[in-house]
Design a protein around this nucleic acid. Structure first.
Lengths: 228, 228
DNA sequence: TATAAAAGTTAGACTAATCTAACTAATTTT
DNA sequence: AAAATTAGTTAGATTAGTCTAACTTTTATA
C-alpha cells in the first residue's frame, strides 16, 4: 500500500510524463517543483519508489512510471476527478473550488467507496475541468482537444476545460461568461493585435491569445473532419 | 490546526467522557486502549494537547477536554456521522460498512465541504446508527434512546438504530420487517420465556430478549413524560 | 573543449508519531 | 501498613517525510 505522499509523487510523475503529452520521463527537479518540495526530498522519495518497483530511476537519470506505478497513479487521478465531479454536480461547488478539496479526498482508501461514487455519478467520463476520468479498469476516454487559440474562425466549439487552474484565471473565465459545456463561436481574429472575437450566449467579446490558449475546447466540425 | 492524530485523541476523549455518560475524565491507559496505541504514546500526545490548551491534564492525573478541545472533537464527530449518513443514504452502503470509511473521511479539512454535505443530506440529526449528529454550531439533538428490550408494554416506539452491526444480525432484522424509522408496538411480554410480542406493519411476531436488546428505539410517549 | 551553469545527490538535522524497556506513583489487597 | 498490583511516566530508538548546506555529475555555452 502506497502512502499519501507516495501517491502524490506517482500522480505528479503521471501528469508530467504521460498526461502532458510528449515527454516520457521527468527529472528530479521537475518533480520536486511540481510538488512544491526541495529536490533533495524528491530524490529520497524517488529512491524509495524505485525500491518498491513503482518507478524506473537510475542515479543522475530521469524517472518514469513502471506498470505498477502507473496503475496507482491512474487510480489516484480517477479518485481525484470523480470527487471533483461529485463536488461540482452534487454539492454545487464552483469549479474553481473543487481541486483543493479533491486533493484530500483522492487519498481515501476504499475501492468500494470510489466504485459506488462512480455509479452514483452515473459513470462520468470527463470531470468539471474537461479532463478524462479513468474508468474502474483504468481505461481513459480520449477526445480531440485543442485550445481556443487554435480554433478555426467561423467554427462553433464547446468549452471542455482549462489549462490554467489558478483561482484567479478561473474567476476571469467566469467573468467572461464561460463555463464547462458552454458553446463558443469564433467570430474573427484581429491581425492587428491578435485579439480573438468570440460569441458567447449571443454576446460578443474579445479575448487575448494568452487567455485563449488556456481554454480547452472541442469542435464537432473538426472532430468530424478528422474522423472522415 | 490539529493533525489527524490529534483529532483522533480529542474524539476518543470526547467519546469516553462526554458521550458515554457518567465520567468527566479519562485515564491515560483508557485513552490508549480506545485508540489502540501504547500508554507511552498516549502520554506523549496528552502532554502535547495540554500544551495546545486542548485538554486539561496534570502528571499522574486524568484528562478532560477544554472548551477548545471539545469544539474540535464535536466537529470531528459531526463530520464522521454526516459521512456515515451520506454513505448509507446516497451510496447504499450497509450499516456495518460505513464506519471504517467514515474514519478516513472525518479528517477532510474543509468547512465548506461539510456544510454543503449537511445541506445535501437535508440537515440530518441522527446517523444510521441512531447517534446524534452535531449541527454546524456544535449543538447536539438529544433523544432518549433505549433498546426494544426496555420499552414499555403498550407503547409505540420507533426504531432508530441497532447495536449489533454484524451482517447476519442485520439480515435477521430485515427479515423481521424492521428498518430505520419503522414503528414498532410492544404488544406483550411472555413471563414464561421472556419473548416479546411486537406489532410491525399490522403483523404480530415474537422476538427474543437477545434480539430486542440489539434494537435501539425512541419512544415519543416516554420522551414526553421525561420532559414534563 | 574548457568552464560555467544547471541538475542531481549526499550527509546530517528536525518533527511527528510510534514503540520497548525500565522506572515511579498511586491504589488496592492482604 | 506493607506488599502487590495497576496506572502512568521517562528515556531512548525507529520510521516517514521534510529541510539546508555542501558536494558531484551532466549539460550547455563561450
Amino acid at each position: 500500500m502506497a502512502s499519501n505522499t507516495e501517491e502524490n509523487y506517482l500522480k505528479a510523475l503521471f501528469q508530467i510524463t504521460i498526461e502532458s503529452g510528449n515527454k516520457q520521463e521527468a527529472g528530479t527537479n521537475e518533480i520536486a517543483a511540481h510538488l512544491g518540495v526541495k529536490p533533495a526530498t524528491a530524490n529520497d522519495m524517488l529512491k524509495k519508489l524505485k525500491l518498491k518497483k513503482l518507478i524506473q530511476y537510475e542515479k543522475y537519470g530521469k524517472s518514469s512510471l513502471t506498470k505498477a506505478g502507473k496503475k496507482i497513479a491512474i487510480e489516484v487521478v480517477r479518485k481525484h476527478r470523480l470527487w471533483e465531479t461529485f463536488l461540482f454536480e452534487k454539492l454545487a461547488f464552483s469549479w474553481d473550488e473543487v481541486h483543493e478539496v479533491a486533493e484530500q479526498l483522492e487519498h481515501i482508501q476504499s475501492k468500494k467507496l470510489i466504485d459506488k461514487l462512480d455509479a452514483y455519478l452515473e459513470y462520468p467520463t470527463f470531470d468539471p475541468h474537461g479532463d478524462t476520468i479513468p474508468n474502474a479498469k483504468g481505461e481513459l476516454t480520449i477526445r480531440i482537444k485543442k485550445t481556443l487559440l487554435e480554433e478555426v474562425v467561423g467554427h462553433q466549439c464547446k468549452m471542455i476545460g482549462v489549462k490554467d487552474n489558478s483561482a484567479s484565471f478561473l474567476q476571469y473565465v467566469n467573468k467572461m461568461g464561460l463555463s464547462i459545456n458552454q458553446t463558443i463561436k469564433i467570430v474573427s481574429r484581429q491581425a492587428f493585435d491578435d485579439l480573438i472575437e468570440i460569441e458567447v450566449n449571443k454576446k460578443i467579446s474579445s479575448v487575448s491569445p494568452k487567455f485563449a490558449e488556456n481554454i480547452i475546447v472541442e469542435c464537432a466540425i473538426c472532430n468530424k473532419a478528422s474522423n472522415a
